[in-house]
Design a protein around this nucleic acid. Sequence first.
DNA 1: AATATCGTAAAATATATATTTTACAAATTT
DNA 2: AAATTTGTAAAATATATATTTTACGATATT
Lengths: 187, 187
Amino acid sequence: MKGSHEDRLDVIKSRIIEQIGNNMKIYGVSQTTGRVMATIYYHQKPMTLDELSEEMGMTKMSMSNAVRELMDLGVAEKIHVKGSRKDHYVIEQDYYQFFIDLFCTSWSKTTHAKAATRMKLSRDLEEIIQDENADPETKEEAKKILEENHKAIEFFNWINRLIQHFESHEIFKHVPIKEGNKKRDPY
Amino acid sequence: MKGSHEDRLDVIKSRIIEQIGNNMKIYGVSQTTGRVMATIYYHQKPMTLDELSEEMGMTKMSMSNAVRELMDLGVAEKIHVKGSRKDHYVIEQDYYQFFIDLFCTSWSKTTHAKAATRMKLSRDLEEIIQDENADPETKEEAKKILEENHKAIEFFNWINRLIQHFESHEIFKHVPIKEGNKKRDPY
DNA sequence: AATATCGTAAAATATATATTTTACAAATTT
DNA sequence: AAATTTGTAAAATATATATTTTACGATATT
């Protein structure tokens, strides 16, 4: 009878971990990576690749890939535990900061490069528009695209400002975390 | 000489479309769907599946899948053009509204269901905690998970409020679109 | 009513992604 | 320095996703 409760708890835990794995897919990370993240989170202590491998029944290599992805996203950190040769990994504990990290990493990754590309294309378009030999119809279309490009660049700038709005936690002033978690304030 | 400018314009156009296709991947839509979206957008007129198929060099079936995905995300709309039997598709023209549609659709899709699951699990945990036969250690862990669950539910609520913050365009008060596009106001 | 057109479901194929296996360099212990 | 352990790259395999082909019902046209 005693064991059945533990079993139920394990079921609950694995369902939560599974759910988080699915959730993470919208952030653009693979299900496995999401599960690794959740596993470390619920373990409450830093974990090694071998522990993860054991716990999840997958190869160490997969775990290595997953934690790298998490570190790239800025939500996992490699820490040294003295007495052990193995790398240990910890996960951002704050849900909101976690969200911000994921959101901002994936967004800022694109905007800069994309805006730069657009600007380059805008210069090409300008050339066509300036060229006197260019066919008027072509020029007309170039102008339209140039305008679109301008709008796109403006939009990328807005995204950047939005990222800042989140990173600076300004957003919480306008969409407050209602109750609890007061300790996040010091950020 | 005249043709070369047109060619250059085509290159620019296809690069932009390609870029948008890549961009969209972070929103969780496939590259093809992103390209379809960009193709319709830059075409400036409603497009049919056959036109898209022709333009993109892919089967009509693929186009059908893509536009359905876009409609599910709330960024494309099927319209009737009189005189034609074929369905025509249009794309949300406003970058910001487009962003909001994508963001909110993908987020709200998860939160409701996920919060419900968590609440159900919380009730299961309560049962374990209340049960006098349960092992104290197990109870302790159940309490911890229950608390985590509570935090998660609170977070989902925050996400919902965040979605509202975007859908209501409140966000623009705090992260304004600097210049131009004044016509968006009436939303 | 017969014929043609349109859109999409279902099955088949092709492509991309995830996972494991194998191999090896770098660091650590003996 | 030899042997062991750790983490990861590269290649091989397995799995999932995207795309096309085929087939067919619904609607419109003749």
